[in-house]
Amino acid sequence: MTTLADAHPIAPRRELAALVHAESTEVIDDVREVCLQRRENVVIEGTLQWGPLGDFLMAQLSEHDYTDVRIVDVEVPASIAHEQAVRCWWEGRLRGISGRDRMGVRFTPPAAIARLYEKGSVSRCAAHARAAFESSLAAAITQVTLIHIDRRLGAEPLVSRRVDGKLVEGR
């Protein structure tokens, strides 16, 4: 087993989660499809770092006759995203070492975070969330709400809403 500089082994369940990412994505896709077929209320968590995912999800929700969809985009500066990722991982690692949490916490490489901010101070995830909200696929859903929370500015969340195809902007 690989040991890190702190003389403790890697927590195999979460610190190595990237090794099984494709398989876990397939499993969650299957679970989501079952939930959508049952018309259950669902929370779909993701970064929307892959552009087409927003359209795919909007199409899937529309296909299953969902009428009220909310997209939440929380933005932080890249520096804060890096700090939070390291802090979350390290605190989870310490819980694992102490025996309080044997699962560990997923490690997110700095390069993965940096790729999200290649085009400026706002992540590409925000652009993808906005694109999903504005897409023709979202227009087929009775009400789609985009809640943009910018933790860089300390401002109130910006809420954009599309009701019956008409865009209503506001705070």
Results as ranks from 00 to 15, higher is better:
I44F: 03
A22Q: 10
Y66Q: 03
V42R: 00
S98G: 15
H82V: 07
G165C: 07
A127F: 06
G154N: 05
D164P: 00
Y117L: 07
A139N: 04
D55Q: 14
M1F: 14
L158H: 10
E118W: 04
L167N: 12
A114L: 07
P157R: 05
G96E: 09
I113D: 00
S79G: 11
A129Q: 01
R70A: 15
V42M: 00
V34Y: 10
S24I: 05
C125V: 01
R95W: 06
A59Y: 08
A155G: 09
I71R: 00
R70I: 15
V74E: 11
W90V: 13
I44L: 08
R13T: 15
D73Y: 04
I141W: 00
D29V: 05
D150K: 04
D150Y: 06
I44W: 02
R162E: 01
G46D: 02
H8A: 07
R93N: 02
L158R: 13
D150F: 04
D101M: 06
E45N: 13
V72K: 03
V27C: 11
D6R: 08
I97C: 07
S123I: 04
T142W: 08
D65W: 15
Q37G: 14
A155L: 13
A140V: 03
P77F: 02
L137K: 06
H148F: 11
L61Y: 03
E23T: 05
A7D: 13
E83A: 09
R32Y: 10
R14H: 12
A59L: 13
L158W: 12
I113T: 05
E45M: 05
P77A: 10
A127G: 15
L146D: 00
A111Y: 06
R32H: 12
R39F: 06
L53I: 13
P157A: 06
S79E: 13
R70L: 14
A85Y: 01
H148L: 11
G99V: 01
R38G: 09
V74D: 07
V105A: 10
T145P: 03
K119I: 04
I97G: 05
I71G: 01
R95P: 04
R95T: 07
P9G: 05
R70H: 14
E33N: 14
S62P: 02
A127R: 09
T3S: 09
A18N: 13
C35A: 15
K166F: 11
S98Y: 14
L36S: 01
T25F: 06
V122L: 12
D68K: 01
V74C: 11
G51Y: 12
S79R: 12
H128R: 02
R39Q: 13
I28N: 15
G170N: 03
E33A: 15
K119W: 08
L167E: 14
N41W: 11
G96H: 07
D6F: 10
A126E: 07
G54Q: 02
L158I: 13
P12H: 10
A81C: 02
E134Q: 06
G170K: 03
H8W: 14
W89A: 02
C125D: 01
A78E: 12
R14G: 00
R124C: 12
E83C: 04
L19Y: 10
A114F: 05
Q84I: 01
A5R: 08
H21W: 09
E63N: 15
H148T: 10
